[in-house]
Design a protein around this nucleic acid. Structure first.
Ligand code: MN
Ligand code: MN
Ligand code: ZN
Ligand code: ZN
Lengths: 126, 126
DNA sequence: TTATATTTGCAACCAAGTTGCAATAAGTGG
DNA sequence: CCACTTATTGCAACTTGGTTGCAAATATAA
């Protein structure tokens, strides 16, 4: 279901993404809002933002869910599919605006390619 | 820790992989051995096989852990890194022997690229 | 066959995520 | 400004995948 009311909690969660272009894990998001709302609420709001095309999600290296702002997506479709990077040192996650060409596989129909790059980020690289 | 004894349980878990080139989720593996061993044992044996370079693991579309046979890996290193495919219809997972060239990202050091392709497998494609 | 160290079972635990339902609070119209 | 309707939230309980500590079992070397 898509949000139809502008609540305090919705504003608070959105602010985090509005102020930064980083990706945030669901664990961070629950943690940073733990004094102002229930974790269920955080999960539900993130869910709605995704359905509305405001945020997109992907899985980090341990299968943890991450959220980041969308560009030009809508409740109709998510169009900004791109690879993500996660730093093995500090754990930070970034959206990468590079194109991955989807490989062809005989007799298969490929709909989507999820790519997660692992390594050291600009702050952790030696 | 690497196996130093050949037990019944170890033999049973290995047989599954020996008989097929499929990938198996940890959930399937626990399920199929539930009458002959404890789930903890399954987890521990899979763990050892990975450390020994007999199996490699990766995450499927819901963050679930999957295991598949290695080719020419050892306890020293896993060398057969490749993309995986998961069918959106039947859930089946396959190792793909295709090369993915690792993209360069400015100021980052990329160590590894995990790629998961999603779509319809040969049996589910229309 | 015995000794020893590895492996296993079990029960309890943990973390991420979900559900049902009652309470609360946006938004609407009067 | 007030009442009403219904979306949203809090809460507690639950589910699932995965881990841990420790005592019991068992593979192997002597
Ligand atoms: Mn992204
Ligand atoms: Mn594989
Ligand atoms: Zn870093
Ligand atoms: Zn299929």
């Amino acid at each position: 279901m898509v949000s139809s009311r502008q609540t305090q909690s919705i504003r608070l969660v959105w602010e985090v993404f509005d102020r930064s272009d980083n990706a945030f894990s669901v664990v961070e998001l629950v943690q940073m809002h733990k004094d102002s709302m229930n974790k269920t609420t955080v999960y539900r709001i993130l869910d709605r933002f995704e359905k509305e095309g405001k945020l997109h999600t992907f899985l980090g290296k341990n299968g943890l869910k991450w959220y980041a702002k969308c560009n030009n997506c809508s409740s109709k479709q998510h169009i900004d599919i791109h690879p993500h990077f996660q730093c093995n040192e500090c754990g930070k996650v970034e959206c990468l605006s590079i194109d991955v060409k989807i490989p062809k596989v005989a007799k298969h129909h490929i709909e989507q390619a999820n790519m997660l790059l692992l390594g050291q980020c600009d702050e952790c690289v030696v």
